[in-house]
């Protein structure tokens, strides 16, 4: 089974490695689709790298290079899609959407949000559950108080609990 939240954790690490300072992530569930989008302002990819990104064996970090290749195969098989756009020096955007017949869950998005918040870049996480929307903006949290220390662990736990509660209460109990 594919857990979207785990894939997000993985993809965000690539953004971090690419020097991103801002990550905009959207996650959605509708009656017909379940998907996510990650947009970063990291170093981006040139055309050659981009065109090879979904081929097996292409890795930015010396790994097996299966991540995006599998994502593309899975989304296509479910009647969904994977779209990657990137520009050198500007950033990268990855959109993945699955048909609802696929063996895919949102999973523990709250725990992923904790990990991503702890990564240190500004995170805008939008969760759309059957039309209802929840937004976590760590930049707002930081600007609300100049001494804000989001890594004070109580704040991270609250973020996790709030996001998972929102998903549970908006039709995502089995997602």
């Amino acid at each position: 089974m594919r857990e979207i939240s785990l894939a997000l954790c993985d993809i965000a690490q690539n953004s971090l490695d690419a020097g991103a300072r801002l990550l905009k992530i959207r996650v959605w569930a509708t009656d017909s689709k379940i998907g996510f989008e990650v947009e970063d302002d990291g170093e981006g990819m040139d055309e050659k790298t981009l065109s090879a990104a979904t081929q097996r064996g292409t890795s930015s970090k010396g790994g097996a290079g299966l991540g995006l290749a599998l994502l593309e195969e899975e989304t296509a098989a479910s009647g969904g899609r994977l779209k990657i756009s990137s520009q050198k020096g500007t950033g990268t955007r990855i959109t993945a959407e699955y048909g609802r017949g696929a063996d895919v869950i949102l999973g523990d998005l709250g725990s992923t949000a904790v990990t991503l918040t702890d990564d240190g870049y500004d995170l805008e996480l939008t969760v759309e559950m059957y039309g209802k929307t929840e937004i976590l903006d760590t930049k707002k949290l930081k600007s609300a108080s100049p001494t804000a220390e989001l890594q004070s662990r109580g704040v991270l736990r609250l973020i996790r609990e709030d996001i998972n509660k929102f998903i549970r209460q908006n039709g995502g109990a089995n997602l």
Partner: peptide, 13 residues
């Protein structure tokens, strides 16, 4: 989300 004020209050505590 909890409001920013809520989270900040907890953070301060």
């Amino acid at each position: 989300m909890k409001s920013i004020a809520d989270i900040m209050a907890i953070r301060d505590a």
